[in-house]
Simulated assay, not measured.
Amino acid sequence: MANITAADVNKLRQTTGAGMMDCKKALVEAEGDFDKAIEILRKKGQKVAANRADRESSEGAVIAAVNADNTQGVIISLNCETDFVAKNESFTKLATDLAELALNYNTKEEFLAADFNGLKVEEKLTEQTGVIGEKIEIGSFETLSGAFVNSYIHAGNRIATLVALSANVEGADEAARNVAMQAAAMAPLALNEEGVDAVTIEKEIEIAKDQLRQEGKPEAMLDNIAKGKLGRFFKDNTLVNQDYIKDSKVSVSEYVKSVNADLTVTGFKRVALA
C-alpha cells in the first residue's frame, strides 16, 4: 500500500477543496496517484450531483464584478441549498473567483464551458457538489456594458446590481455606485418608460380603471385619469424616474445630471435571491 503523508492529503485538499478525510480516502483508493485521486473525488461529486438534482438551490451568493476600465460588468449567482453553506467563507470566495472569470464571457453557456483551474466551470460545480454535499449551480448570469460601469453588492451577498452611465467623467464612479445602490434598494422594473413592456402597461391601465370604477368615476373619464395614474407607475417603477433615495427632492436622472449636465443612465442589471 502506498505511503500517504499528511502533505499529500493537504495538497489534494488545497487543489480540490474536499475535506481531509475524503482526500485521504481518495488517495488510499488511488494508491497514492494524485491525478487518479482527483478523478475519484470528481466521480463522487457526480454521484452526489445526480442524487441531489431535484433539490431546490434557492440560497447562495450573488456577486457582481467589473473589469479594470469600467466598461463591462457581470453578475452571477452561485446557488446552493442552505443559508449555512451560502455564508461559508470558502463558498463566497468561489463565487467571487467565478464572477471574475465570468467577465470574459458573454453567455452563461460559454462561461460554464470555460476553464477554471484545469476544470470546466461546470465540472468545478459538480466537484464542489461532492465536496459540500449540496446542489451547487450557477443561477443567474447577467452582463452589462457601457461608457462607465460600476457595481454594488448588498450586505449578505443576496442582491447585486450593475449600472452603466453615458460617459466616464469626473464623479462617474460615485454616481454609478449610488445609482446601483438605488437599483438594489428600489428594485425598478425598467430603466425608463420605453423599457416597460406593453403587457405590463395594459395591465396597469386596467387596474387603474377598475379602481376608478369602484370610486364611481364616469366611464368617459376613465382613460384620461388612468393615463395619469400610469405616470405615477412609471415614476415609482422606472429607475431614472424614481425619487433618488439620498435626496427625494430630485429624481435619479436629475441626480446624475447634477454630477455632469450631459450624464445619463444607459442601463442597469439587478439580481436577487428570492
Rank of each mutant, 00 (worst) to 15 (best):
A6K: 13
D8T: 07
K11A: 12
K11S: 10
R13L: 05
T15L: 13
T16V: 04
G17V: 06
M21K: 04
V28W: 01
D35H: 00
I38S: 06
E39V: 08
K43E: 15
K44S: 13
V48C: 04
A49V: 08
A50V: 07
S57E: 06
A61Y: 01
A65C: 13
A65S: 15
N67Q: 08
N67E: 02
D69P: 01
I75Q: 01
S77A: 14
L78A: 02
F84S: 10
T92E: 09
L101C: 03
K108P: 11
F116R: 01
G118D: 12
L119T: 04
K124G: 00
E127G: 14
V131Q: 13
V131W: 09
I138R: 08
G146L: 11
G146P: 09
A147Q: 12
A147W: 00
A147E: 12
A147V: 04
V149E: 00
V149Y: 02
N157H: 13
E170P: 00
A184F: 09
M186N: 10
A198Q: 15
E206L: 10
E206P: 02
D210V: 11
R213P: 03
R213K: 15
E215K: 15
E215V: 06
P218I: 03
P218A: 09
L222N: 06
I225R: 09
K227F: 10
F234E: 00
V256N: 05
K257H: 06
T266N: 08
